[in-house]
Computed example of a mutant assay.
Amino acid sequence: MRRAHHPETGEITLMGVMAALSDPIRVGLVRVLADGQERGWGELRAPVAKSTLSHHLKVLRDAGLTRTRQEGTRCFVVLRREELQARYPGLLPAVLAAAEDEDVGHQVAVSPSLQESSL
């Protein structure tokens, strides 16, 4: 796997962020990652094929919403909360509140067995 590109905070654009958040699966991924935990890609559960999940994670990374780290053959992802807050103050909390209120992305979750072991 080649090294993933992560836009610098100043390179993150509002249109890129909004486009990335235009899909309910990606909103669900952001909701799951909003707890601040770094998650292995294998921990994330969504009603899509693995290749489609990988595509959604790439869209979020390219837009600057997440940071991906590779360790051997495993990939880990974390929400770039501080960078997003610095670039667009209040945007992420507003998106998360609206997604919660409208139940957008509810079908995305963390694997229960993996979630329990991290407690």
Rank of each mutant, 00 (worst) to 15 (best):
V30T: 11
L44Y: 09
V110G: 02
E82S: 13
D35V: 00
H55S: 09
A34E: 03
H5W: 08
L65Q: 03
A49F: 12
T68V: 15
R45F: 04
A94E: 14
L29E: 05
E43N: 00
V95N: 13
G105I: 07
A46M: 11
H106G: 12
H56N: 08
R3N: 10
V78A: 15
D23T: 10
M1V: 06
S22N: 09
R67N: 09
L21K: 00
P7H: 12
P89G: 08
P112Q: 13
L33N: 02
I25W: 04
L84A: 09
L119S: 04
A98M: 15
M15Q: 10
T73L: 14
D23P: 03
L91V: 07
R45Q: 12
L60N: 04
L114I: 00
C75P: 02
S117G: 04
G36M: 13
E11K: 15
R80M: 06
R39Y: 11
S117T: 03
G40N: 15
A98I: 14
L65K: 05
H5V: 08
Q115S: 01
E38H: 11
R31H: 08
S111L: 03
A49V: 02
V104G: 01
T9K: 04
R74T: 06
I12A: 08
R69Q: 08
V77T: 15
T52L: 14
A98S: 08
V30Q: 05
E71P: 02
L79T: 04
L21V: 00
R74W: 04
K50T: 12
A63M: 06
T66Y: 06
A20W: 10
S51W: 12
D62W: 06
A109W: 07
A49M: 13
V95G: 08
V17P: 02
L60E: 02
L96M: 11
Q37G: 12
G42Q: 13
V108R: 01
E11P: 06
M18S: 06
L84F: 09
D62I: 10
G105L: 04
V77M: 14
R26Q: 05
A94T: 15
G28N: 03
R87I: 12
G28L: 07
R74F: 03
T52F: 04
T66P: 01
E38G: 09
H56T: 08
Q115H: 02
G72V: 10
A94S: 13
I25T: 15
L92G: 03
E82P: 01
P24C: 05
H56K: 12
Y88H: 07
L21A: 00
G10D: 07
Q37M: 12
L91N: 04
R80K: 07
V48D: 08
A4L: 13
G16H: 06
E102F: 14
L96C: 05
A46E: 14
H5I: 14
D23H: 15
V32N: 01
Y88D: 04
H106F: 05
A4F: 15
A109G: 09
E116T: 00
E11M: 11
K50V: 07
C75M: 03
M1C: 12
E83D: 15
L33R: 01
E43A: 03
E43V: 00
V78W: 08
D35E: 02
S111F: 01
E8C: 03
E83C: 10
A97L: 10
S113N: 07
V48R: 11
V59G: 00
R31A: 11
A99T: 05
A97E: 15
A86V: 00
A63C: 05
K58W: 15
A99R: 04
A34N: 06
Q37T: 14
